Structures are given as structure tokens and as C-alpha cells.
Simulated assay, not measured.
Amino acid sequence: MRARTGAGLGLWLAPVLLAATILIGTAVGETPLTLSTVFRTLANHFWQADYPVDAIDAGIVWSYRFPRAIVAACCGAGLALTGVVLQALLRNPLADPYLMGLSAGASTGAVLVAVAGVGGGAVSMSMGALTGALLAFGCVVALAHAASGAAGGGRATQAAAAMILAGIAGSQMFNALTAFTIARSANAEQARGIMFWMMGNLSGIRWEDVAPCAAVSLAGGALCLWHRRGLDAFTFGTHGAASLGINVPVLRGSLIAATAIMVGVLVSKVGAIGFVGLVVPHAMRFLVGARHDRLVPASALAGAVFLVAADVISRILVAGQVLPIGVVTALVGAPAFALVLLRGART
């Protein structure tokens, strides 16, 4: 009872923590600003207040840091949700958009559009990333199905192992395609920018990027909550879920399509960021349990806080230099995931 009460209290406090993290992320940077400057600038824009604020400071807050913090929160929530969905549907604790090839495919699609000029300007980076994510996941599923179908006995175990191996193979293949495209079509400056972007980069985020990131994250979260009982049913496997009245092909297809859309849009805006979809769901599962009515909102909020905090760290870890955010998530995520594994092994 105490654990449930604590988890419920944590879910209520998480939005407050997220708001505080966004405000801190808006204040911290190469040019440090006070929280009062941030509050006054936001009040001037949202409530037409007339607080005196330096024009340069106001521009930094409103045009650069605040939308960057919002997009970081949306991306963290969306990537954490993709991890929750993939781990539930595939019944594999290692499933996440990075390992399953979605991020690699989205990066390839975005680079083909941005660098190689695929689509002749008629295709956006978001559409290219979405197409790449869907194509990559299709290749991974087809390869895993062929590999597990050709093996004898232990079908469930074979399928889980085949999906991971197929995801690794798919990720490597699409990463190689991305590198080939950059080497063949990009000049030195483009190559440097693309490689920095592929490790996660929020430097170019502006207000026009907020709407698509927020839309896919909110829609993805709503869809996951709507199908929370179906996700719970997958705990018993596909046959168990079907016996509970779940339309397995429709549910799995719709959620995987939603996952691919989220990854495609988010990767096209901020690049491929690893570990969020892997670590956050495990940490929240440990804190709030495996039921998706709690796990979905907890993972979304924790992912948002985690990525905003990682963005802040990326700006202050090395003086005078902004690190790719993927470097920070890996530095934090790898030890955190090791702790989750060790604590899980002891329980």
C-alpha cells in the first residue's frame, strides 16, 4: 500500500519537477540568466505583462532556450514511450528504437533527403525520417520472422533472440547507408554538421519545431494510455492476449506504426538519441510497477525530465563547448541501466 501511495504521489509531483527542470534549462547556458529574468520574459509573452527585461536576454529566453527545453521534454517523453511500447509488444527487455533499427532508419531517411537531395525538395526531412524508420523496422521484422521460422523448437525464445539479432543487423546496415551517403554526397562542413546532429543536437531548435514534436508525443501518449489494457495483456504473450479478446495484429500494427511515426519525427528534429527508450521504462517499471496505466505516464514524464536535464548538462559539462546530447544520455544511461540490471538480479 505504501509503495502504491508513493508511486501515486510521484506521478502527481512529476509535472512540477518537469516544469522546474524546463525553467532551469531555460536559465542555464553559455550566458547564464536568472530565474526572475525567465519568469518575466515568459509573463510578458504569455500574459502580456510589462516587466522590464533586457532585449537580448528576452530574445535568448523566448527564441532559443525555452523552445529548446520544450522540444527536449517532448522528445524525451516520446522516446521513453517508444521503449515502453516495444518492450511490451515484443516481450523483450532490450527492445528500444535504437536497438530495433528505428533510429538508424530514420537517420538514413533524413540524411538522404537533406544531403543527397532525395525527393527533389518535395519531401521533408520528417517524411524522409518516417519512411526510413518504417522501412528499417519492416526489414528487421522480416529478417527476424525468417530466422525464427527457420529454427526448430523453443519458438518464443527463438523469436525474441532473432528480433534482437535482426535489430542489430538492421541498425548496422542503415548506419552504413547513412555513412556512405554522407561520404559520397556531403562536403566537409555538411559532414561535420550531420555527424554532430546524428549524435543528438538541439542547437537549431526554434518555435516551428515545437508543434510537430509536441503533437506526436501527446498523440503517442494518448494512444498508449487508450491501449493500456492491451499492452498489459501482452505480458502473457500473443496467444494469451488473443485469448483475452485483444485483436493482436491490429493492436500491434497500430502501436508499431505510431512508434515509427514518433521516432521519425523526433529524429528528424534532434537526431538519434540513445538510451532514453531503454533506460527510462526499466527505471519506471521498478518504481511504479509493470501496469501500463501507471507505467505510461511515469515513463513519459521521467523521459521528459531526463532529456531536459541531459541537455542542460551538455551545455555546462565542458566550458565553452556544447556536447551532443547523445553523449550525455549514454554517459548517464549506461551506468543507470547497469544499476537497474543489478538491482533486478538481486530481487
Rank of each mutant, 00 (worst) to 15 (best):
V305R: 08
M198P: 00
L323C: 04
G128S: 02
R4P: 05
G25P: 10
A3R: 13
V210W: 10
G78R: 08
P15N: 09
E208A: 15
V340N: 05
G78Q: 08
A166P: 10
V118I: 11
V210C: 06
A214S: 09
A215L: 14
V312D: 05
A298C: 10
L317P: 00
E189R: 14
G230P: 02
V140C: 07
G271E: 10
G344T: 00
M163G: 08
L134F: 12
W47G: 13
L339Q: 01
F337M: 02
A95R: 02
N201G: 03
C139P: 00
G240E: 03
G152Q: 02
Q321G: 00
H227V: 03
M127Q: 07
R2S: 12
S217I: 02
N247S: 13
M262V: 14
V305W: 10
I246D: 00
Y64E: 12
G200Y: 10
T108S: 15
T31H: 09
D293P: 05
N92C: 03
C75Q: 08
G245H: 03
L218I: 13
I60W: 00
M163W: 05
G153N: 14
I182R: 03
F236P: 00
A116Q: 06
F46K: 01
I325V: 15
A283D: 07
L266S: 01
V250C: 11
N201K: 04
M1F: 13
I273H: 09
A162H: 12
R315D: 03
M262L: 14
S243H: 04
A150F: 01
A211K: 12
A3D: 01
A300W: 11
S314Q: 09
A176K: 05
L9D: 03
M1P: 09
F337G: 04
R291G: 15
G277D: 03
G333L: 01
L33P: 02
A58Q: 11
G152V: 00
A300F: 06
R68F: 08
R155Y: 11
L339F: 09
N175V: 11
Q321H: 12
G237Q: 01
I164T: 14
G25W: 12
T82S: 14
P297Y: 13
A241D: 02
S124L: 01
L295A: 15
G289T: 07
I256P: 00
Q172L: 15
A166I: 10
G200M: 09
M195A: 12
G120A: 06
L17K: 04
L323K: 06
I70H: 07
A55L: 13
L86K: 12
L89P: 06
M262Q: 12
N44K: 07
A310L: 10
A338Q: 01
W12R: 14
V322R: 07
V216W: 00
T131Y: 00
W12V: 15
D209W: 11
A151M: 11
A191I: 08
A219C: 04
V111T: 15
M173P: 10
I313Y: 03
L342F: 11
A77M: 07
I313A: 13
L90P: 03
A3L: 06
L102A: 09
P281L: 07
E30H: 15
L89W: 09
G138I: 12
